[in-house]
């Protein structure tokens, strides 16, 4: 049928990988699992874990799932999904982490601790009341002075 559908789509049916490749990949996965568990005790944090997990994922996708030898369009599908996921993470986190960056007042927005909020407001109100009292006193002084 279509020109590009039959022949030139690196179809994997003739590409049978040697057994050694499978076991090598499996070995690498085991080693990486070991490393990620050990590293967790060193408390190196998110980044190292993500990097190791990504390498493991790449090995599984590339070899066990044959993506390396398959139609390039499958990689495009995968990358499109990752692009959408990336946007999803990026913008949700942009919102949650940037409150207060453009507008300082936003620190109060979505404050989860009610007591802190009430304290803050009460302090402000007390300060305002004190200022008002002072003014009144001054006025009173002025009155007596006059």
């Amino acid at each position: 049928m279509s020109a590009d559908s039959n022949h030139n789509q690196g179809h994997g049916e003739h590409h049978v990988m040697p057994l050694s490749t499978y076991f090598a990949v499996f070995g690498a996965l085991l080693v990486l699992t070991g490393i990620t568990v050990l590293v967790s005790f060193l408390k190196l944090g998110l980044l190292v874990a993500v990097v190791i997990a990504s390498i493991k994922a790449a090995l599984v996708v590339g070899y066990f799932m044959h993506l390396k030898y398959d139609d390039r369009f499958y990689s495009v599908i995968l990358l499109s999904s990752l692009f959408a996921i990336f946007c999803f993470f990026l913008f949700v986190f942009l919102d949650f982490t940037s409150r207060g960056m453009v507008v300082p007042e936003e620190e109060t927005n979505f404050l989860r601790n009610e007591r802190a909020m009430i304290e803050r407001l009460e302090q402000e109100e007390a300060a305002a009341a004190a200022a008002a009292e002072e003014e009144e006193e001054e006025e009173a002084e002025e009155d007596t002075g006059g």
Binding site: F83, F91, L94, D95, T97, S98, G100, V102, E106, N109
Partner: peptide
Amino acid sequence: FLVWGHHMFVSGQSGLSAA
């Protein structure tokens, strides 16, 4: 995929992400 937040300008999302 990049514009969904314009439904939430007054929902209290951050000023930066609104922009």
